[in-house]
Amino acid sequence: MGSVKKYFKKQFRRNMFGLKYKSNSDFYLSCFQSSTSALPLLIVRLLLFLTCLGIFISSLTITTMYFSNAGLWFLYMTSWGVMLITITSGFGFVVSATIYLKGDPDDSSGLPWYIKVYWALYTLTIPIAFFITVFYWAFLSSANEEFAVDSVLDIFIHAINSVIMFLLLITARQPTNLLHFYISILFAIVYVIFTVIYYSVDGRDPFGNPYIYPVLDWNNAGTSMITVVFAAILIIVFHFLTAMMTVARDAFSRWWTRNDDNFQLA
């Protein structure tokens, strides 16, 4: 219990709101490697980025062909999520590639801007990816509206998206601060504001309905607000679970490297 109390006491300090951290290396080394080379995680992140890029291009292309209007792709939070996983995995690759080519900058100068951007994106995208997966399969997949324009694509943008972000998490070493939950909440607020604006200008979904999602129909503002509050709580829960998975990852990596001296990524 002492270690749990110590963890939460540390997490709820005021300085944990920001993007300050003591070590650059935790953002380009894997928790499972004993070397100091940026190459192993560079390769992993390149593969994840290329996968995300493929999903992004496929999703945009197939949806545009189905609806004959590329603009409709940008209506859905799922599409925003696809963009997020692509940008986040891309920034992860940029961080690893920059360190591999130029070397690690001095820790005394604080985190470089590109590491801060990656950390913020990482903190945002993983809980949002989990949220999109759970919310879609629990509340939208059985709705009357046909959200899935292609069954295979449906799996990639509503399930594989979370798998990729989980892989990004378990191969990393950087922390997940509990107080960073506000980053995901701000993103959700931006999307809600977008749906309100879209509704106010008489925007329609691809099927002519006056909403983007049936559970977020601003003709029924009360029900929509309940959905928003529920979604916000769910996002915070997924952020907390992400933090707990980070703790478990770090504990497992310490056990693994201590009990298997021969295991190395490089």
Score class of each variant (00 low, 15 high):
Leu29Pro: 00
Thr63Gly: 14
Ala70Tyr: 13
Lys102Pro: 09
Met245Trp: 15
Met245Gly: 13
Ile233Phe: 14
Asp104Tyr: 02
Ile132Thr: 12
Met83Thr: 11
Ala159Cys: 10
Phe238Pro: 03
Gly110Gln: 12
Ile62Gly: 01
Val134His: 03
Ile126Tyr: 05
Tyr191Asp: 01
Val228Asn: 08
Tyr21Cys: 12
Thr242Lys: 08
Ala172Asn: 06
Asn69Ser: 14
Thr125Tyr: 03
Gly71Tyr: 04
Trp218Arg: 12
Phe135Leu: 15
Tyr76Gln: 05
Ile57Cys: 13
Thr242Gln: 11
Lys22Glu: 11
Leu234Ile: 09
Tyr76Ile: 10
Leu47Tyr: 14
Asn219Glu: 12
Met1Ala: 06
Tyr136Gln: 05
Ser30Leu: 07
Leu101Ala: 07
Val215Trp: 07
Thr51Met: 13
Leu140Asn: 00
Tyr191Ala: 04
Val247Thr: 08
Leu265His: 00
Phe67Ala: 15
Ile170Trp: 03
Ser141Val: 03
Leu47Ile: 15
Ser89Ile: 04
Ile185Val: 11
Val82Lys: 04
His180Tyr: 02
Glu146Ile: 10
Gly54Ala: 05
Tyr114Ile: 14
Lys10Pro: 01
Leu60Tyr: 10
Pro206Phe: 09
Leu153Gln: 15
Gly103Glu: 06
Gly81Cys: 09
Ile212Ser: 03
Tyr76Phe: 15
Ala248Asp: 10
Ala266Asp: 04
Thr133Glu: 09
Thr86Gln: 12
Ile164Asn: 04
Ser25Asn: 06
Ser34Arg: 11
Phe67Ile: 15
Leu60Lys: 07
Ile236Ser: 08
Phe187Ala: 13
Phe130Trp: 07
Ser3Ile: 04
Asp104Leu: 06
Ser25Gln: 07
Gln33Asp: 08
Gly54Arg: 03
Thr64Asn: 01
Leu19Ile: 14
Thr227Gln: 11
Ile170Arg: 02
Pro112Glu: 05
Val134Arg: 03
Ile155Phe: 09
Ala251Pro: 04
Arg258Trp: 00
Phe130Glu: 00
Val4Ala: 13
